[in-house]
Write a protein that binds this DNA or RNA. Structure first.
Lengths: 197, 197
DNA sequence: TTTATATTTAGACACTTGTCTAATACTCTT
DNA sequence: AAGAGTATTAGACAAGTGTCTAAATATAAA
């Protein structure tokens, strides 16, 4: 990303960011990511290519920014301190809700991109990263003989696998049913969690 | 892949396939995948670009063929019929051995591509696919309330996660230690397996 | 309102991509 | 050794990529 999201953007910058991300979401609802060029994104957004490259490295970078926009609602942050092993389901539920809110968009995108590994990887990896980040900072809660990083990776991968199963492979599943999947795949007795002190 | 790997290749075709795959492995040991162009691959191989496109769709397709070459030694096939739940470790060990045999190559590749998600995804996804394929055909061995596809995905993802931890994130780990990781992450009592009939 | 700063823009640059053609050369069988 | 079937090749094509300039605009803060 060329543009610094740290500072709060000016009016014009925000307009430009919005235009490009909305165009991208529109285009991936209509055709395969591979068939979308930066030139086309710019034509649809009625911005010149030079402006695109002021903000993004390439179309994948813009795509990542789109996930960022969608995920902004998550509000998982360091303050969400862990009070019980139910925390995993709290994380899971937040992402589940976001995906559910954006289900019609996701479904449209999948019609054209269900076999595009670049698209799927981009999407899954984005959410893996943000969950991994918050989860790893709570890992002192866990009692395990495993390397903490490895355990965190495994938990995150498992949560995302279930979300992928539900939303990308489109197996309608209630939150309750999904919680059962978590219990089975991560151990129904959750032996890896410390007793509360 | 433009070329049909089903039929056995002629002498010339084999020579060409070898030249391109050897060049690719050489180049990814030297620089980032993103910085390698089809033109460069062709210059190093002293083949014209037209020949490249006779065989491959693009550089990612060639990369996939490279993993195919490396994985050919695996010899996991349908005949390897499952006799006990130890089968998971059999699969794991085969890939572990292949990665170990190619460790010096992997290490060189990672120097330049440790942050290239295209490279890592290509590598991991290739091996996920081949393990998934053989594993899914043995899933009647498992006793579970989960959808079989989901359980298979989870097992494969977990095995690959451990291999990624060892070989890509380069935490030296013995096969025995890795087996312990499998036991813990997939359930030390392996409750998901049917009793033998 | 002015000014410093940030953003947008047109156009040019060298380079890469994937496809196509038609001529040439190889190599496998018989 | 001849012919059928494969494989290689040069070069051209339209399109896309990412970078760079320098001028023109827009914006935020004093």
């Amino acid at each position: 990303m060329k543009y610094d999201l740290g500072k709060k953007p000016t009016k014009g910058a925000q307009r430009t960011l919005n235009a490009f991300s909305e165009t991208m979401l529109k285009l991936i609802s209509q055709k395969r990511l591979e068939d979308i060029s930066v030139s086309e994104i710019c034509e649809v957004s009625t911005f010149p290519r030079a402006t695109f490259y002021n903000y993004f490295d390439d179309k994948y970078d813009l795509l990542n920014y789109c996930w960022h926009i969608i995920a902004e609602e998550i509000q998982i942050n360091e303050e969400t301190k862990i009070t019980s092993h139910g925390i995993l389901k709290v994380y899971f539920d937040r992402i589940y809700d976001i995906f559910m809110e954006n289900k019609s968009l996701l479904d449209k995108v999948l019609v054209n991109n269900n076999s595009s590994s670049a698209m799927i990887n981009s999407f899954i990896n984005y959410f893996k990263e943000i969950i991994h980040h918050v989860l790893y900072n709570s890992m002192d809660q866990f009692e395990t003989t495993l390397p903490l990083e490895l355990l965190a990776d495994h938990i995150v991968a498992t949560l995302l696998l279930i979300l992928e199963w539900i939303f990308l492979e489109q197996h309608d599943t209630t939150k309750q049913q999904a919680h059962q999947y978590i219990d089975v795949l991560l151990g129904s007795d959750l032996p890896k969690f410390k007793a509360r002190s």
